[in-house]
Amino acid sequence: METGSAAVLKVLQLIPTLDRSGAEKQMVMLSKGLPRDRFRVEAAVLTRPGPLEAELVAAGIPVTSIAKRRKVDPFALGRLTRLIRAGKFDVVQTWIFAANAYGRIAARRAGTPVVVTAEMAVDLWKGRIERAVDRRLATSCDKLVGNSNAVVDYYRKLGVPAERLEMIYSGVADEAPPQVDPAAVRAEIGFPPDASLALFAGRLAPQKRVGDLLKVLDLLQHVQPDLRTAIVGDGPMRAELEKLAGRYDLVDRVRFLGHREDVPRLMAAADVVVLTSEYEGLPNVVLEAMMLSKPVVATAAPGTTEVVADGLTGMLAPIGDIPALAKVLRNLIRDPARARALGAAGRERALAEFNDGAMIARFADLYERLAAAKGLAVAPSPTAS
């Protein structure tokens, strides 16, 4: 607790990196948005910084790098423990598996009163070892927060006690949409200015099933010849996916753009945003698309179904059902009025249910509830949204 201001809680946010991905964006949004009269926030990266570090520094939030070098790195654990102990933090919040594991151990060793773990996906990738670590460390945090009911249900079934689970939806900021010339954006990335444009944005990893998207585009290239697709992001499957696009003769219809700093601009120029994941938590890309009034075509993956209302704010198809995905994407491209209506309804829902203010208020309330239960003095706060 900060000396001279007994009601201000010191909070450390710990995450593996500060790349432009979903959990990282949520952590930065939360860190910048917590009320300064009630919280003093610092951040730490377990492995390395990234482009989002600049946002934290600009907001006056110190960032420390722990520089973990190996998968199992006791020296990094020691450095992290010393940082937390020296900082005398009241709350430590951890994000993503590695930081969740190292952070919970270090925070308890340092005697931190409140430890919160954030889980951002229905992590079907986790094997026996990772699931065992999660179960073992479940009692080393006061709350495990899932960003959707699907995530909370996953960890409940994994064996995390119900009383340690909490659900707080991810948030999205209502920012002024980029002013773009859609025809110019298409031409810039090598497409005809009058093409219909679909956008995928995400990590090129097995979870996202981008290969399914390429199969959809293969089906559509003859029946919807004006459709072009921009794939934004990078990952371990990029080379394989580029080869697959070549085998499907999609080289002129698909562009792999890699990491981009202008995703909102590209999204604003697109006609539809596509997500073909096997599982999610609460996908940031869908929230961002909805806030920009863009219709979404997605698979009915755990987490995604909580934000996309099928037929109301977007269109859903079964995971892996290539013909069904192709049909809903084709129908939406052919019906611009329907697409605009879905996009408008999506924005209304994002504003009402997934705004950043509600997310920040709920985390602030959680920190103060847990701190008060540990006997720490906290400032009076409004009821969370």
Score class of each variant (00 low, 15 high):
A6F: 12
R20A: 11
G33L: 02
R36I: 04
D37C: 06
R38Q: 15
L46Q: 03
R48H: 11
A54T: 11
G60L: 11
I66C: 02
K71R: 15
R85L: 07
A86L: 13
W95V: 03
W95D: 00
A99C: 12
G103W: 00
G103Q: 01
M120C: 14
D123T: 13
R128F: 14
E130P: 09
E130I: 13
R131I: 04
D134A: 14
S140H: 08
C141S: 14
D142Q: 06
D142T: 03
A150V: 02
D153L: 06
L158M: 09
A162N: 11
E163Q: 10
Y169V: 08
V172C: 13
D174F: 10
P177S: 05
D181Q: 11
P182V: 01
A183L: 07
V185N: 00
S196Y: 12
L197S: 00
F200G: 01
A201D: 02
A201T: 04
R203V: 05
L204Q: 02
A205G: 06
V210W: 01
D212H: 09
L213P: 03
L217Y: 01
P225I: 10
D226R: 15
L227K: 02
R228D: 12
T229F: 08
E240I: 03
E240T: 05
L241S: 04
L244T: 11
L244N: 03
Y248M: 07
D252L: 05
R255H: 05
R265K: 12
R265I: 06
L266Q: 01
A269Y: 00
L275E: 03
Y279C: 02
L282V: 09
P283C: 04
P295T: 07
A298L: 10
P302I: 10
D321N: 15
A324P: 10
N331M: 11
I333T: 04
P336L: 02
A339P: 01
R340S: 13
L342H: 06
E348K: 14
E348A: 14
E348C: 15
A350R: 10
M359Y: 07
A364E: 06
R369N: 09
G375C: 13
A377F: 15
T383F: 10
